[in-house]
Amino acid sequence: MNTATTIPSESQASSSKMLVAMVGIGTLCALLIALVYEGTFDRIAHLRAEALEAAVFRVLPGTSTTIVFALTSSGTFELAEEGADRVVYAGYNDQGALTGVAVEAAGQGYAGIINILVGYDPATETVVGFYVLQSNETPGLGDKIEKDEKFLANFSGLDVSLENSQLKNRVVPVKSGTKANPWEVEAITGATISSRAIAEIIDTGVGEMIPLIHKHQQVFQKMN
C-alpha cells in the first residue's frame, strides 16, 4: 500500500466551484484581517509614537513634549504632515521653551546600517544627546556604542558650532584617551570601526542638517 493509491481520484472540479472557493476564502480572510487591523490600529499607533517620543526625550534632556517638523524643499521647516519624510523633532520643556531639536541620521557601521537620533541645541550650538535607534553591530563589541558610558559622554556637549553656515570644526574620531577638543569623539577601544562610524554619521548626516536648523531656529521657538 502506498500513498498514491490511497488518495481517491476525484472528478475534476468545475471552474465555477474553484472560483467560489477562492473568492469565499479570500473574502473570509480579508474580513478577518480588516477586523484585527481596526482593533489594533489605535494601540499600535500609540505605542509607536510613545517609542519615538521616549527616544526624543533621551537625546534632549529636560524635554516633556515634542513637535514634529518637516524640512521643505526650500530649506525651511514647517509643521510636519502625516507621512512626511526628512523630519526633525523639536523638544520643549515644561515652560514651553525649546530644549533642542532631534535629528535622525544613518550611515554604514561595521555590520550594516546604523540609525541614530542626535539631539542638537541651537542655543549652545552643541550636541546634547545621542541614541542608537537601530544597529546590527556585533553584540558585546560594536554595540558598546549604545552602552559605553564614556563613549556616550562624548555627546553631551559635543561642539558643532558654525562658521559660514558650515561646521567650524568637523566632528572627528580620535583614539581613546586622546580627546583634546570639544568637537572630537573619543573612540571605544575594541570597537574602533563602530565608533568611527558614529562620528562620521554625525559629521556628514547631522552636520548637513545643523546649519539649516540653526538658521531657522526661530521657527521652532515660534510654535509654542
Binding site: 472540479a13 472557493a21 489594533t40 499600535i44
Partner: peptide, 27 residues
C-alpha cells in the same frame, strides 16, 4: 476546497493568520 486550488487556499489562510499575529505582536 477543490483539490486543484488547495495550495493557493492554504497559503491564503496561512498568510491571513500571519498578518493577524503580526498586528497582535505590534499591539
Amino acid at each position: 476546497i477543490p483539490k486543484q486550488v488547495r495550495i493557493a487556499s492554504y497559503i491564503l489562510i496561512i498568510a491571513t493568520f500571519v498578518t493577524i499575529i503580526d498586528y497582535a505582536i505590534q499591539a
